[in-house]
Design a protein around this nucleic acid. Sequence first.
DNA 1: GACAAATACGAACGATCGTTCTAAATTCAC
DNA 2: GTGAATTTAGAACGATCGTTCGTATTTGTC
Lengths: 220, 220
Amino acid sequence: MNAIQRLSDHAIRRLSKGEETRAQILDVALNVASESGFEALTIGSLAERTGLSKSGLFAHFGSKEDLQIAVLDEGARRVSERVFKAALSEQRGVVRLRALFGNWLGWAESCQLKGGCPIMAAAFEFDDRPGPVRDAVVKHHARMQSGMARTVELCIETGEFRPDTDPQQFAFEIFGIANAYYFSHRLMRDADAAERAFKAFDRLVTGSLVTAPSSATSAN
Amino acid sequence: MNAIQRLSDHAIRRLSKGEETRAQILDVALNVASESGFEALTIGSLAERTGLSKSGLFAHFGSKEDLQIAVLDEGARRVSERVFKAALSEQRGVVRLRALFGNWLGWAESCQLKGGCPIMAAAFEFDDRPGPVRDAVVKHHARMQSGMARTVELCIETGEFRPDTDPQQFAFEIFGIANAYYFSHRLMRDADAAERAFKAFDRLVTGSLVTAPSSATSAN
DNA sequence: GACAAATACGAACGATCGTTCTAAATTCAC
DNA sequence: GTGAATTTAGAACGATCGTTCGTATTTGTC
């Protein structure tokens, strides 16, 4: 298979009518999930917002569960683009890690999602409900987590972080800061949320730098 | 009003039948909210679980919104007891702060709530839905936050933390760690979640101790 | 332009939602 | 024990839920 064929298969090919409407539905659905959660993602309200009939919309997914997973996948796709791929333009190391962190805090707003990150919302909604949706949430979170840990590893490889830094622990703590930001920003409407988050991030990073005195506690 | 009258008013007085059933309902409801969220807190399923009729149960609250707020208040009451009051038995300072943190991580399980902390769940569910329920969530979170910050202040007063420590920032970061713990523990089923959380907590505390070298980054 | 395939609609399904009545049963003070 | 007040049950309401089915309409291919 040559390059042109691959292009026409994966990128250029015009979307069929069905695929196009499906994409539009997912766009609206992602907004709903962001603002009101996955529970509020009802077929009826979604049909009304998209101008489709209930059954017409339903046909694109086959079940509400599949719809929820599709929305989840679309959210993860955007995270991958807006957060991870966007950070790749920065040079590897702390600079990229910082970009990754900043992108994470703001990606939902950069996607015009009025409510926060839908994947985080899904994590809270489905953490106690076994099933395919929960499995999908876990899959996406594991991917994000390991992506974050990998970026931390690069900070060790560039010589910026001490070799004994634990990437998993670091990712854990970064995730915590992002969560605290979401609470402060979205629930408490705290204007200082971003500032607080970056302050915490800087403290976390500083503790792992090789230039830091070894008496300071490391992140591992 | 003398002490005995106060006692009989606030503590001893036998619960009327209605108050007793209401308490039982709230106990069941708190479990449902913990496991499946406040959205899943439906009158019908709640009536079935308590053995009451829908209308009989409904009469105790008057509206679903009032029910949700009542469940929220009950949850906050338990947090106050299990987390904050329980920590008061420890001496003020870092020891108490650590107890507070540990209580927070485990209080839901110590209350036999199979799903995580219902107040955290509520925070995510209502952060984008204006109304009385959201207001109640904000109120409770503000209270927990300031209680945490106050405990940090005591660490400064005992001379353990540097005077330039920012209690609000400290509370922000503690809250983040608790959130990361919830994700790791509940969603990812990570067995190391508690260990990770305490490691992060220790790193946070160490950075604010007066014994720490001043070159280490402080939490303010 | 014709014909098959893909896509969308409209009506209806049983179930459940929150809520409102009225009436029966129970609790509680005297 | 009696009577008033509190507490519960039962039936019904319109609305909405996810889903199914048969039938239009539209799309894409030759």
